[in-house]
């Protein structure tokens, strides 16, 4: 028996060592780097907290997450319910919906740019229809609000499928007899959705929400490509501090903030919002 344990540990050891070296150690040194200030510890953080850009970045990151996550969740649930009716040709729709999954945030941003740039197709269509005479500008620091909404829209386009596949997988794993029982016992469609389907989906919804919220705080590619630093976000500032200002300490401080937020969110989701019926018994 103990030989089997040894074998198991030997098989797993390389993975543990690799992750310890490439994830554990960097994480630790980010921590150290961020805390070792110029003169005393926390210097870097004090500077950070006095920087208006940081608060802007935090604000915009939170605002984007606040817009993107709920919209995505609702859209994804609706989409999953649609695809799960298994109508004729649903697998084609499934493929189309999952295309953005294969695309990087950079690609998604470029696609969005194709649509929204001054010479983009939205402007072209509107001008050809005679609805506008000059292009509408969606980008540039004068149009921050428009930029914000284009970014939100792009992220919704890009990452809704992520939520969608998790929800769909959850939906497909629901025992069909639960729903048939609801039909038999007189549930209306709305009652079936709210009293049976959504509660049973709760674990999937939770993990999708967790995933999406975490990713939302790491938002970078789309913002950087479309708005640069017009709309500062935490991950973007990390990149900017390191690459453009060559300031690894400040970059580490930003990274730490992101890590901290990640930790807090994970904690809230994992321990605060568990499904009661799953907790109290064996699944």
């Amino acid at each position: 028996m103990s030989e089997a344990k040894t074998v198991a540990w030997l098989l797993i050891l390389p993975t543990i060592l690799y992750l310890a070296f490439f994830i554990g150690y960097p994480l630790f040194s980010t921590f150290v780097m961020a805390l070792s200030g110029e003169e005393k510890a926390f210097d870097t953080f004090l500077n950070l907290f006095h920087d208006k850009t940081f608060w802007d970045a935090l604000k915009y990151t939170l605002m984007l997450a606040g817009v993107i996550v709920p919209v995505q969740l609702v859209l994804a649930i609706a989409l999953a319910l649609l695809v799960n009716t298994k109508f004729k040709g649903y697998s084609t729709l499934l493929y189309i919906v999952t295309i953005p999954l294969a695309l990087s945030d950079v690609t998604a941003a470029l696609m969005s740019y194709t649509m929204f740039s001054p010479m983009g197709y939205i402007n072209k269509f509107l001008m050809n229809l005679g609805l506008i005479s000059r292009p509408i500008y969606f980008f540039g620091f004068m149009y921050k609000t428009r930029e914000f909404w284009v970014i939100a829209l792009t992220e919704i386009w890009r990452a809704t499928p992520l939520v969608f596949v998790i929800i769909l997988a959850g939906l497909q794993s629901i025992n069909k007899e639960y729903l048939e029982a609801a039909d038999i016992f007189g549930f209306t469609k709305a009652q079936k959705l709210f009293k049976i389907i959504l509660p049973l989906l709760k674990p999937s919804i939770m993990s999708a929400l967790l995933m999406r919220t975490l990713f939302a705080f790491q938002i970078f590619g789309v913002v950087w490509m479309l708005a640069g630093r017009d709309i500062p976000v935490l991950a973007g500032e990390t990149y900017y501090q390191y690459i453009n200002l060559n300031n690894p300490k400040m970059a580490s401080a930003y990274a730490m903030i992101i890590a901290l937020i990640t930790l807090i969110i994970s904690y809230i989701y994992l321990f605060g919002l568990r499904s009661k019926h799953l907790e109290e018994g064996v699944r």
């Binding site: 980010t30 975490l214 990390t238 390191y242």
Partner: peptide, 12 residues
């Protein structure tokens, strides 16, 4: 769930 952003700088 650890952002890659956190890791990139020390890795460098």
């Amino acid at each position: 769930s650890i952002p890659l952003i956190v890791l990139a700088v020390p890795l460098m």
